[in-house]
């Protein structure tokens, strides 16, 4: 464990909690892409099946259970409890355009053609594009609630911190995982446009609105 991975995990946890609290407190999922949340639930489900097969540490196990629990709770709040506030018209990204290519790539490019490894690879590739429906929805509505921008900031920051974690681990442990690194770079690049808007607008107290 190193400072980049720890702050990365805490940033990820903060994002997940911020979103859950936003929906729960405002009793509304306006502006939130339910499709991205479905993808995140799928990412955690396919990545954390090793909860059933191996124990790494209490931290590892507890964080995985929290991530999975919050992901499904968020999907439940969006599609069941606060379904009336779900903006399905603007959440129109075709998930099959992501899941099918990612599934194919996971079968072609992986470290080992075993069941758990393919699922892990699928979850890594899927996570790198899972935010696209959310970013697409914001581009369609042309704006985002400030609390939603904080959610996106911490979510984007987490994988950026993981990039530093991988540099650290390569230098000090000689460890690296090219699949996770390449997907992590792609994932972080997808946030760059948002990061620019977040820093230049939201941090200056303005609302995040895209030029219509």
């Amino acid at each position: 464990m190193n400072i980049f991975r720890l702050t990365g995990d805490l940033s990820h946890l903060a994002a997940i909690i911020i979103l859950l609290l936003k929906i729960w407190k405002t009793r509304s999922c306006a502006g939130i892409s339910g499709k991205s949340q479905i993808l995140f639930a799928l990412v955690f489900t396919t990545r954390y099946l090793d909860l059933l097969t191996s124990f790494i540490s209490f931290y590892n196990t507890i964080m995985k259970l929290i991530y999975i629990g919050c992901a499904y709770a968020t999907v439940y709040l969006i599609y069941m409890k606060f379904k009336a506030t779900y903006d399905g018209n603007h959440d129109s990204f075709r998930l099959e355009f992501l899941v099918v290519p990612v599934g194919g790539l996971a079968c072609l490019v992986n470290h080992d053609f075993s069941f758990l490894e393919i699922l892990w690879t699928f979850s890594i590739y899927l996570e790198s594009v899972a935010i696209l429906p959310q970013l697409f929805m914001i581009s369609k509505t042309g704006e985002a609630e400030t609390i939603t921008t904080h959610y996106l900031f911490f979510l984007g920051l987490y994988r950026a911190l993981y990039l530093f974690n991988w540099i650290w681990r390569f230098y000090f442990e000689g460890f690296f995982d090219m699949i996770a690194i390449v997907a992590g770079v792609v994932q972080t690049i997808l946030y760059c446009d948002f990061f620019y808007l977040y820093v230049t607008k939201v941090l200056k107290g303005k609302k995040l609105s895209l030029p219509a």
Binding site: R5, D9, H12, D50, S54, I56, S57, N60, M63, K64, Y67, H111, D112, E117, W120, Y162, N165, E173, G174, F175, F176, D177, M178, I179, A180
Partner: peptide, 10 residues
Amino acid sequence: PGKSNQKDEL
């Protein structure tokens, strides 16, 4: 070290 499939990250 260098092994890529030690899955100790979240």
